[in-house]
Design a protein around this nucleic acid. Structure first.
Length: 580
RNA sequence: CGGGGCGUGGCUCAGCCUGGUAGAGCGUCAGGUUUGGGACCUGAAAGUCGUGGGUUCAAAUCCCACCGCCCCGACCA
């Protein structure tokens, strides 16, 4: 297919739009791929949509290849199924709710576990119908607290979501592996480097999960990994052999003793003179309201509480920090002077790094006072010990002892082993060979399709614009006559473009009567892998010019060899994104 | 929701502090000169200065409220 620039809408921007912060977002706007309607809501322009469709096609091919069945579910959903799964409350923050004319409430689907499980509950009754995996590529709605970075975090976005149903645990493991492998192939075909990390399951629930991460400075996640690749986990989930600085473990034998610390309400302040208590000798006491019940979380003063780990330990994702008033009512002091010594009527979750800690300092539950000589196991009534801290770079991997590295990344895919949480709640049961009714064992698998598209750009651009991997490029070839007043150039470009198009390639032909510089700049912006230009200068030597966007290499190729040369260069480009 | 920043032709911004005529560059339209990496000249169209209220003889400018956008935090594909 030949697309003529003058017949398209490709509004490139000379200047960087003020609304865009990160490169991929800027380039999507500057290259005329998308336009914003409102915060977190974007229109795909023709070129952007073409690239999006390329990603979708790869996703679809790989899902089909993995044996998943494409369906299409309603975006508008009855709230009852959300109540049935128990997520109406848990997910209420992200649920868009609308009312119809009768005042009845509906929700705009942020995800489709409830819908697919309802379907399966009605349609699948026998182990003979299992396993099955259903997927769709569809718009999702999430009332994001803060939409960000263009398509990276939007209120409305396109997701590929898949849901597997198995009769046995082993089967569910196989289904999971199939999706894991399909995802690996999908992202490779999109030209993305991904690292696969162990991840927290969050509101989704379930047994375990992996995230597919694209390393990028602008990513919203942090991943911890070892250089040798043996370990990789989302920082929300990552573990280590503990802090580099050992916790003091020598008991002085002395009993806890209160001392005055007027005005000292932070770990840092207590670490400074006159007190000089090193952060790792302090116990940080945090109070949360977990489903409206108070829970204390204890970590070492120099550690950060990991909220995902806390949620897992507390057994609920519905929690918030207690207000200063609530802290005072519970413990008799305000944040900054809180401690767990002598507290026994409240759930106390303590970090493993505090186990055996001696001679520690913590709040005295009297404003302006702290306690010293605190031995954790002697003086604290700990309900449960958990790994609650956030790992830091250089700490040693639990498995191999290798030092951990930490880097930022964009989450483009997430696979979950769900178990029976939804199938039990929604009644998705089947009759097994042994005559027993059993809940289906589920997995769910998501790819942020629009986010993936932007991640491709985030990972592949230069100062001049986007550098598309050929598999996702809106067009393979960008062709132009440098001077459209020069009839022989135009005729040749038309001819070569036709030949390329008849060979199945998509060609964007810049037929504008613009100066060469303008068209070259725009070609770099738009980022097609190959630029084919015909000008009087090279044509006089019987040649056309072929430029590879990725390397910038320019070659003059005899007219009669041009088409073959373009195809050969594209074949090279394809090799970079091939799987198998 | 807490913190910070910003709303002025399509885009990027100046003007605001110190109230009095709404500006520049880019883009757009017309004409001309140009023509291999964002040309130049001439002319033109295009702005409720985010919205509402207040102060004032007079508000883009000062005050208040609201709305929107962007960034940092909690959430997630």
């Amino acid at each position: 297919m030949i697309y003529r620039w003058t017949q398209q809408l490709i509004p490139t921007l000379r200047e960087v739009p003020g609304e865009a912060e990160i490169p991929s977002h800027q380039w999507m706007l500057r290259s005329g791929l998308i336009r914003k309607l409102a915060g977190g809501l974007y229109t795909f322009l023709p070129l952007g949509l073409r690239a999006l469709r390329k990603v979708e096609r790869i996703v679809r091919e790989e899902m089909d290849r993995a044996g998943a069945l494409e369906v299409l579910m309603p975006a508008l959903q009855p709230p009852e199924i959300w109540q049935q799964s128990g997520r109406y409350k848990a997910a209420s923050d992200v649920l868009f709710k609308v009312n119809d004319r009768a005042g009845r409430e509906w929700v705009l689907g942020p995800t489709h576990e409830e819908v697919i499980t309802t379907l399966v509950a009605g349609e699948i009754n026998s182990y003979r119908q299992l396993p099955r995996n259903f997927y769709q590529i569809q718009v999702k709605f999430r009332d994001e607290i803060r939409p960000r970075f263009g398509l990276m975090r939007a209120k409305e976005f396109i997701m590929k979501d898949a849901y597997s149903f198995d009769a046995t645990d082993e089967g569910a493991g196989i289904s999971y592996k199939k999706m894991y492998d399909a995802y690996t192939r999908i992202f490779r075909r999109c030209g993305l480097n991904t690292i696969i990390v162990e991840a927290d399951t969050g509101v989704m629930g379930g047994k375990f999960s992996h995230e597919f991460m694209v390393p990028a400075e602008t990513g919203e996640n942090e991943v911890a990994y070892t250089e040798n690749g043996a370990y990789a986990a989302n920082v929300e989930k990552a573990t280590s052999r503990g802090p580099l600085l050992a916790t003091p473990a020598q008991s002085t034998g002395a009993a806890p003793e209160q001392f005055a610390t007027p005005g000292v309400v932070t770990i840092e302040a207590l670490a400074k003179p006159p007190h000089g208590v090193a952060a790792h000798q302090q116990i940080k006491t945090l109070v949360f309201m977990v489903e409206s019940k108070p829970v204390l979380a204890l970590v070492r003063g120099d550690d950060q509480l990991n909220e995902a780990k806390f949620a897992a330990a507390a057994g609920s994702t519905v929690f918030r920090p207690a207000t200063p008033e609530e802290c005072h009512a519970l413990l008799g002091a305000h944040p900054g002077s809180l401690g767990a010594v002598g507290v026994s009527n409240v759930t106390v979750l303590a970090d493993e790094a505090l186990r055996g800690a001696c001679g520690m300092v913590t709040g005295a539950n009297v404003d302006g006072f702290h306690l010293r000589h605190v031995d954790a196991e002697r003086d604290l009534t700990v309900t449960r010990w958990h790994d609650l801290r956030t790992v830091r770079a250089e700490e040693l991997s639990r498995e191999s002892g290798e030092p951990l590295r930490i880097r930022r990344a964009i989450e483009v895919g997430h696979v979950f082993k769900l178990g029976t949480k939804y199938s039990e709640a929604m009644g998705a049961r089947f009759l097994d060979a042994d005559g027993q009714q059993k809940p289906c064992i589920m997995g769910c698998y998501g790819i942020g399709v629009t986010r993936t598209l932007q991640a491709v750009i985030e990972q592949s651009w230069d100062a001049n614009g986007i550098i598309w991997p050929v598999s996702v490029a809106p067009v393979e070839v960008h062709a132009m006559a440098i001077n459209v007043q020069h009839a022989p150039s135009v005729e040749l470009v038309e001819r070569l473009s036709s030949e390329l198009a008849s060979g199945g390639l998509d060609v964007l032909m810049d037929d504008r009567d613009e100066r060469a510089g303008v068209k070259f700049k725009d070609a770099d912006f738009v980022g097609a892998p190959i630029r084919l230009s015909v000008g009087e200068r090279s044509l006089s030597k019987g040649a056309v010019e072929i430029k590879l966007r990725r390397t910038g290499a320019v070659e003059n190729v005899p007219v009669e060899q041009a088409v073959e040369r373009v195809k050969a260069l594209l074949a090279d480009e394809w090799r970079a994104v091939r799987v198998d």
